[in-house]
Design a protein around this nucleic acid. Structure first.
Lengths: 98, 98
DNA sequence: CCTTCGTTTCGTAATTTTACGAAATACGAA
DNA sequence: TTCGTATTTCGTAAAATTACGAAACGAAGG
């Protein structure tokens, strides 16, 4: 028997997006990706003052939250916003603050 | 000598707000407060499926992030949105997703 | 003054997050 | 196939988050 969920899908999804954005470097990355179309992990690594492995973890979290996606273009990996989910996040936040 | 900050004030502030909103119960609380004007910790405790002490911790986090404020009206405490910071969060998120 | 009510703080535990360097992986080029 | 480049995963450690119940607290009422 399923325990009844207290929180709505929207609430959980919004919290999930918020969590993905709860670190300055992830804000920075998304901001960059929303301005230019895409970027490479390596290019980011040169800008951002953290280890590459740590950056990779942050990218993974954004990816898990669905906000970005990575496209392999050997030997690099090109990251872009996931437009669909980005729009959904935008909508959820807009609703929330309305 | 101050180490130069990599992240801008806006980035850090946005991450801070996002962090405050990164848990469903805190989304729930803010949502409630944005719809009705105010509410009491006790009333929340009856709705929400967590211990009162845990709820108190969540309220504290929202307060620390500046999103809500508590007003003592003995023997209860009335919580409201902090309108000024709420507007700021709204603006930062709107900018961010634009 | 002592009790009660509403709430928060304390003590504690389990889990998650953040961070790093070393090692592993994937792929194209030599 | 071996090398070099780009990136991720692993192993690890420190710190933060989330959760609970018990205890403490502050103000009003008896």
């Amino acid at each position: 028997m399923e325990v009844k969920e207290f929180y709505s899908t929207e609430e959980k999804q919004l919290a999930r997006f918020a969590k993905a954005l709860s670190h300055p470097v992830r804000i920075y990355i998304c901001d960059l990706l929303s301005k230019q179309t895409c970027c490479y992990s390596g290019d980011l690594a040169e800008e951002v003052p953290i280890a590459r492995s740590t950056l990779s973890q942050h990218l993974k979290e954004l990816k898990n939250a669905g906000l970005i996606q990575g496209e392999i273009t050997p030997p690099k990996i090109k990251y872009c916003l996931n437009k669909e989910n980005w729009a959904m996040a935008q909508k959820l936040f807009t609703e929330f603050f309305k």
